[in-house]
Write a protein that binds this DNA or RNA. Structure first.
Lengths: 131, 131
DNA sequence: CTTGACCTTGACACTGACGTCAAGGATTAC
DNA sequence: GTAATCCTTGACGTCAGTGTCAAGGTCAAG
């Protein structure tokens, strides 16, 4: 019932380095065997899965913390807690900000390009709209 | 006709550190006085202005290089050279990529939020379209 | 007994554009 | 003369999440 870090890493699809890093930042934990080796159980696997899912979705490790704590406190999903939902909302606002910034920046660059290279008309497709 | 780094920095609106950094990376240059002090003339001021403009627009220092060289070779604007235009195009493609990524990510986060918090409908305004 | 696979902690490398401090020389103002 | 300000180079810190190496302990198979 206890796996060591190598197996955990394989099963979770992450590096052992990543697991130690998550632990160092208090997101996961592990018992220690008499030899000092980390021993993990299945529950930690779910936590790591949650972390990976969030990281690949653009969240930071800090963002992942409330989700992990939500899972640890017995909830079925990491986003069953208000703190997690708050992170969703904050992230959504951040994304909207970033998108607005990039869209504005794109317009500027396109304008510069048009000015520097008349005839270099640029077309782009964003959500079914031609620009 | 020659100003030192402090005055140059004030006039260009950048730090002396930034000027040394640009020089270190070969983007600007300066004569040296007998005491070892850098001495700048007006032409360098234009280069720094170009660099700042590009950096604040989201370009990297490397991106700025062709623009600076374009100016140095006597052109009225930094984007009068094909290399600069190529950078514009590449940047445009990068921005489109990033925007697409962020928009997709936003949709995922919004979906998660909707699932985790029914009734938390989120509205956003992107270019006159309500979502 | 030895090889080899696994584990441990610690610590440097990376990316970019600087900020900031250190230690020292030059210049200017009074 | 001396304090204040300016200049020089060099080098570490920042942010994030690892990759990677170092130096060593542990353990099962042969």
């Amino acid at each position: 019932m206890g796996m060591r870090i190598g197996e955990m890493a394989r099963r979770a699809g992450v590096s052992t380095r990543a697991l130690r890093y998550y632990e160092q930042h208090g997101l996961i934990s592990a018992r220690r065997g008499p030899n000092g080796y980390r021993e993990y159980d299945e529950s930690q696997l779910a936590l790591v899965a949650e972390i990976r899912s969030l990281l690949t979705a653009g969240f930071t490790l800090e963002d992942a913390r409330p989700f992990v704590e939500c899972l640890r406190s017995g909830n079925a999903t990491g986003d069953s807690c208000p703190e997690s939902v708050a992170v969703y909302r904050r992230k959504l606002a951040e994304l909207d900000d970033q998108i607005r910034t990039l869209v504005a920046r794109r317009a500027e660059v396109a304008a510069q390009l048009a000015g520097a290279c008349p005839g270099c008309t640029v077309h782009v497709e964003i959500r079914g709209r031609r620009t």
